[in-house]
Design a protein around this nucleic acid. Structure first.
Lengths: 238, 238
DNA sequence: AATTTACAAGGATATATTTCCTATATAGGC
DNA sequence: GCCTATATAGGAAATATATCCTTGTAAATT
């Protein structure tokens, strides 16, 4: 599990900003100026828009965000107005949080919105798409550090069937795209609509072998064709 | 544990924005406009500055952020320019992410910097102060959602002594100020310099009774005067 | 090939924010 | 109370960004 632990560390452990040091104002102002324009470009891209299309969508003149207008002829940087940015954000259904995520390369890891549902509900239809990702409208949401998987979801445990590890009411964070290996704690969805939280013992081309988290329950060997998805459990509340 | 689970939910579960719905642009623009001015005011306050002193510190004219100039005579909202905001941030040694926290009342909870240390090291001297809070310079740091305890710390498990619950390399988040009750998973520090992760069975005026997380180990009953601190485990990596 | 559409550069003008300036209010020190 | 410094309101002018408009290019459509 050392590799697994390191992976978690890599994702969450960050070099945080130290005390501000003496800096030249001009250098920083230029940096933020570039970042703001870049963020607008990324915002446009994310919505499959060109800068001019983003401006138009925002009710601004199509030339407002032109690259050619980002520096004056006299070499002075031109800053988009705060109002223009607000309009662009609104036109794309984005909020200021998302914009500032785009702005700052040196930001701490962003919080991720993680959909949350009860464990018992997870087997019902309509909550996952074909890829095993959360879908539909029955999900609540929690905030958590970026776990490196946009499709991560949270399940709230119900009942005592996963003791001693997970108690009633605990919340587990699941990454459906994370690679899994022997020993990982996983959530498995079967074609029968079952949702299981187990430890992965072995995975072959034909079967998935799972060890129960509750020692009172036996191991489970599933034919691979009965397994819809396997997601790795990455955090658990206590 | 229902109350415990609810407590965690209260701290982390947030009502996040749903899908954008039809909204009048003017209403939203006004909202962000107010927020940005308010954020500038809070930024000034945080540095014991008035709006005019903040403007001056930023190299702007002292009237730039005057309250009297935030709406034009014709009723049109005036927005501070992005350049002015950038200068104010730089003058106060703030970055855009700190500004974000000030801007948006509906922002997700802030990230908390949580000190991290190896479990085996935690019993060594110099890592905790008298109140059981992290101290000294041997701590690494991770980012985590605000757990409601400024003194929370993280311990990285080493060894197999806490199986099946915690494996080698797992990281647990501990709140030293959280109240604990029977059934809580806790980290106990003793006067002998031991650090134990156990489940709290009973706490009386004279003793603390702990159930081992590893069923191979017996329960432990400690005289209260041997117990330095008890912190509650609130999250665990998997 | 001709036309239409989208995108972007560039210039002139309109509009919005900052700057400059003045006056008044407030707070702190003597 | 007086003096000084700071904070704030308000008006005019300077400066900066948005808007309007034109032109050129590329790609898609007819």
């Amino acid at each position: 599990m050392l590799v697994c632990a390191l992976r978690i560390r890599e994702q969450i452990f960050i070099p945080l900003a130290r005390d501000p040091v003496a800096r030249s104002l001009n250098g920083i102002a230029m940096l933020n100026h570039d970042q703001i324009w870049k963020a607008l470009d990324v915002l446009a891209q994310r919505h499959s828009l060109s800068p001019s299309a983003l401006a138009k969508k925002a009710g601004l003149d199509s030339t407002t965000f032109n690259k050619s207008k980002r520096m004056s002829l006299d070499g002075r940087p031109r800053w988009p107005s705060t109002e223009s940015i607000a309009k662009a954000l609104d036109a794309t259904g984005s909020n200021l949080n998302e914009f500032l995520r785009l702005v700052s390369d040196s930001a701490p890891p962003v919080l991720q919105t993680i959909p949350l549902i009860g464990f018992a509900q997870a087997g019902d239809g309509g909550f996952f798409d074909d890829g095993g990702f959360p879908a539909g409208s029955g999900w609540d949401e929690i905030a958590f550090p970026n776990v490196g998987d946009d499709h991560a979801y949270a399940l709230e445990i119900s009942g005592d069937s996963m003791l001693p590890l997970y108690r009633d009411g605990d919340t587990i964070i699941v990454s459906p795209t994370a690679s899994v290996r022997r020993g990982d704690r996983v959530v498995v969805r079967t074609t029968d609509g079952e949702v299981l939280a187990k430890e992965l013992r072995r995975q072959t081309p034909k079967t998935v072998e799972l060890r129960s988290l509750n020692p009172d329950h036996g191991d489970r060997i599933l034919p691979i064709e009965h397994v819809t998805t396997i997601g790795r459990i990455i955090w658990s509340s206590q």
